[in-house]
Computed example of a mutant assay.
Amino acid sequence: MALYGAQVFNESGQLGMDTNSFTYQVLWQGVINFSMTSGNTPTIYTFNIPGFNPATCVFMIIPTRPQDVQTAEGDATGNTKSYPYVTTSVGQVVVRSANPSANLNNTNQTRIVAKAYAIRFST
């Protein structure tokens, strides 16, 4: 019998996950656009996602434009290319252009455009 799929092994060489024992479901996907963020007023997106639970779900953000990827650690525009600040709770994800405790007079906010996914996983 031929095997298909992916297997992941831990540092001890033991099988940690394979496609026969691990499944996932995309609960939500969309584009988050911070390109128009400016000044000291943050852009905030609140997504109500039925079935989302931080204990069994992840929220991923993937930049979609080449200019949104920081070219080096010392890049002077690094904050504008940083990942947004994400807060998760049961049924809800909040994505902000800046950390809510940041002093926005001295902090550049993110200006990325990204694809975002809420994914539930189970074993």
Results as ranks from 00 to 15, higher is better:
Gln67Met: 09
Val93Ala: 10
Thr80Asp: 05
Gly5Trp: 05
Leu104His: 04
Pro42His: 06
Ala102Glu: 09
Gln7Val: 05
Ser89Trp: 06
Tyr45Pro: 00
Phe22Thr: 10
Gln70Pro: 05
Ser21Phe: 04
Thr110Arg: 02
Ala76Pro: 15
Asn103Cys: 09
Val8Glu: 09
Ser38Ala: 07
Ile62Thr: 14
Gly39Cys: 11
Val94Pro: 02
Gly16Asp: 14
Tyr83Lys: 13
Asn48His: 08
Tyr117Pro: 11
Ser82Leu: 01
Ser97Trp: 02
Leu3Met: 10
Asn103Thr: 05
Thr110Ala: 04
Asn99Ala: 08
Thr107Glu: 12
Arg96Glu: 11
Thr64Ala: 06
Phe52Leu: 10
Leu15Ile: 11
Ala2Glu: 15
Ile61Asn: 01
Thr46His: 01
Ile62Arg: 14
Phe121Val: 12
Met17His: 07
Asn79Lys: 07
Arg65Glu: 11
Met1Pro: 07
Pro66Glu: 01
Arg65Asn: 12
Asn106Tyr: 10
Arg111Trp: 00
Ser12Tyr: 06
Met17Tyr: 11
Gly5Glu: 00
Gln7Asp: 10
Asp68Ala: 03
Pro100Trp: 01
Thr56His: 06
Ala6Asp: 11
Gln67Lys: 13
Asp75Ser: 08
Thr23Asn: 15
Asn20Arg: 11
Thr41Ser: 10
Ser12Ala: 15
Val69Phe: 01
Ser122Ala: 14
Gly30Leu: 03
Thr110Glu: 03
